[in-house]
Nucleic acid binder design. Sequence first.
DNA 1: CAGTGAGCGAGCTTCCGCTTGACTT
Length: 885
Amino acid sequence: MSTLVIVESPTKARTIRKYLPNDYQVEASMGHIRDLPQSASEIPAAVKKEKWSQLGVNVEADFEPIYVVPKDKKKVVKTLKDALKNATELVLATDEDREGESISWHLLQVLKPKVPTKRMVFHEITEEAIQNALHHCRDLNEQLVHAQETRRILDRLVGYTLSPLLWKKIAPKLSAGRVQSVAVRLIVMRERERRAFRMGSYWDLKAHLSKDNTPFDAKLISVDGTKVATGSDFDENTGQIKAGRNVQLLNEADANALKERLLGKPWNVSNFEERQNRRKPAPPFTTSTLQQEANRKLRLSARDTMRVAQSLYENGYITYMRTDSVHLSEQAIAAARECVTQMYGPDYLSPQPRQYATKSKGAQEAHEAIRPAGNRFRTPRETGLKDRELALYDLIWKRTVASQMAEVRQTSLSVDLSVENALFRANGKRIDFPGFFRAYVEGSDDPDAALENREAILPALAVGDRPDCQDIEAVGHETQPPARFTEASLVKTLESEGIGRPSTYASIIGTIIDRGYAQMQNNALVPSFTAFAVCSLLENYFPDLVDLHFTAKMEATLDRISTGDVEWIPYLREFYSGDKGLDTQVRQQEDQIEPTEAKTIVLENLPVNVRIGKFGPYLETEKDGETITASIPQNLTPSDLDSEQVEVLLRQKTEGPDKLGMHPETGEPIYILIGSYGPYVQLGEVSDENPKPKRASLPKGQTPETITLETAVGLLSLPRLLGVHPESGNKIQAGLGRFGPYIVHKKGGEDGKDDYRSIRASSEDDVLTIPLERALEMLAEPKRGRGRRGSKKKPMRELGDHPTDKEPLNIYDGPYGPYIKYKRKNISIPDGDSAEELTLERAVELIAAKSSSRKTSTAKRKTTSKKTSTAKRKTTSKKTSNSDS
DNA sequence: CAGTGAGCGAGCTTCCGCTTGACTT
């Protein structure tokens, strides 16, 4: 007699196990166990001949989906089937949202239980909640399942009909989708705005004043009652003052003249305003807000944030990390309030427990907000966590605790000061009661806004006061183009539009980067030329699908499907086969979309065309009846491409490369060229005798404009001999490699390997001038490795040495939880054991078990590496011969 | 590592959302 309970995740399985009777067995489905075939290899042979097989959906027969169990889920299904054999009852306890309901339905379809089956849902993992849920089981909600199928099928239809169109018209392997294409479009639209942006400049005055020895600053507001122009008065597209603004624009001369006129004149306080306001703390974290804050405050990518959060979750530090809910359980609120009282005192507690309402579109709220786990929150210090885990936990702890703290009370002050016919203003801010600021201040994408939280002290001033003026400064300003999207601001926008789900925000960014639609530059997402081409095609021919509101409209329909107000198959039929349906449109538009046109990117104010070619983007133009093409270097983005850049690239192509000068010794010419990997110098010309002339990339920081003949000669003479190592007597050289400048001790390392050290761009050292002494110094230091901070990670626990070979055994904390490291092997700690209590004996056992099972290790794995051409990896042998014996 | 952009042409590429796994640098 036993009951089998199935949930999504192993961690959840472990926790609810505690609250269930002994004869209950809990297993995890690991998310969805069935899906539409992902690629051609998964399409069942029976339907392979059908026209629609590539879609995985029979669009000719009521959109019947072909579901398959993907390879990596076969094992899970087998485990579940085995478990079911011993069960007298099945309880499906997946999340209560659309996807969760669907997972349960697929489980039923695949497991075909012969025993009674119930559906159970709970929102909190407490004994009470689980007991309660167990006694209030219900049936599967078929309408909700249909809503999920509709979502799944619609996404498939969009993705798998538009992507092939892009392969035909623009380039192979591109992709389009309901979510990613809107994300790309947001980035492209912002870049267009940036391209269209025209800078405006203006001047104003800043006065340094003081009253009773307290200094303060004031800014010029108006002269003769007319407002002085500031940034917001400018039109972004012209760089001029917006039409109809009654302002006066000061240039440098105006500002200086005014300054001279006002210096030494008496100042007078003409107005004084004080305004009190209050601020509430931000709600506890959801996936989206956690990713935003971790990106802003810890500079973590969305993906890294999730990895660290997963580890915190699995080790019981935080609640589930994929959620769109800001809801806190009663226990959590009590725990947060307890923390406030303990750490900050009762004055800092919000008078009433604060509960926030989720307002993002399409939220499904199957979980709580992300918060410290348990009924008593461990302080960050108590956890014993380190590095990123500590930093992220700290962030979550503070945000949760702050949400139950008192409001901030502050006073804003605005003081007007007259001098002659000019009016200045000083703004101040006083924090009367810091409230939740004591624990947490929300980050911002806008550096100016971050300053807003700071206090700005003003002396006590009253109308009629006459402060002293020490100095007046004329300050020049330039208007800024709209900022590019960061991961944080993109996730924020997507979430507020209801696009994407907590489990996908991180991967959306991954997808658009993998497809070459965007690249990351200084934490900003910069779209590629391909992104421009794809985006334009979609906007021109499928505007509805890339509309920002498409997902929200779809969600509204899905909701109606789940309540039974709309039928799912007619909706899909209309969407795909209707007069304005997707399939109909693709058929009609296909002939009209000219590939040449689709590959061409229209960039305003450019005298040439940019086209997407087999080897990346290139310029194309006509000159004297001939077509000239020129590659665009990889790291040159649409925003960098102005007519000046175009001219350089084309001139290089038509007139040959720029000659930097002659080599002082050989007399050969040295050229400066731009290739797809950026600028480089070349000695001599390509000819039959000399098919591969000596070349060298310009090191970081050098541009074709700044490089001198001397540097070029130096670069071309690399690698350079510095001298010999005093101990080994071997050569020490400095050179320029694929990863930048380096020094090397030839055959100097242990086991006869060359010993390399990178010359860091941030250091004072230069490959061309670095002396032997400095090189020896660098070689004496250990390699820095590729790790984030320092080379060696500190173990979480040291277990001691292995009894047979005395090699150390340590426990480390990895992205997927703690693991044992022994020699070069990593063994994760199984469910039954804990990292804190594991003994040396047990570890040795686990290692032995691992070595024997590894003999039949997977033969090959799909390579997921992107662009290996530029980053060839040494393939390390996977044989475990040293430990198998 | 490198200066191309058309052509042979089988079979494949691709979506979104749920979840963890096994892997070195």
